[in-house]
């Protein structure tokens, strides 16, 4: 059984799921996805990207030089997409179980689908 993804890893994979992005693009996208709740810092972003590359979940799509500075685009791999899909399924099952039990207990779940 695979280990649950940590939130920064989950959000970075989510940011890359639709299209390749460069580092700053991922940073901004993670903020958007999490409604500004998660603000990744560069150190954390590249620690996670390095690990994901080592594990084969993410790879370099292309490199550009913008204003004499390297800009590298990352894309999710097939393995990464599968890992993200597995995690989405796990979270969905947990969320469904939690909302079902809350509903059964008579609680009204605000903002959820219970």
């Amino acid at each position: 059984m695979t280990e649950a993804l940590r939130e920064p890893t989950f959000l970075i994979l989510t940011a890359l799921a639709e299209q390749p992005q460069h580092g700053y693009g991922v940073l901004e996208d993670v903020r958007r996805i999490s409604d500004d709740r998660v603000r990744l810092r560069a150190g954390t972003l590249y620690a996670v990207l390095d690990r994901l590359r080592t594990e084969g979940l993410v790879e370099v799509d292309r490199e550009e030089i913008v204003q004499s500075r390297l800009r590298r685009y990352y894309r999710i791999t097939g393995l990464g997409a599968q890992r993200l899909a597995d995690e989405v399924g796990r979270l969905r099952r947990n969320a469904t179980a939690a909302s079902t039990r809350l509903r059964n207990a008579g609680f009204v779940v605000e903002g959820g689908q219970a």
Binding site: A42, Y46, L70
Partner: peptide
């Protein structure tokens, strides 16, 4: 691997 890129970010 990452110094220039991190600096840019």
């Amino acid at each position: 691997a990452y110094e220039e890129e991190m600096l840019g970010v």
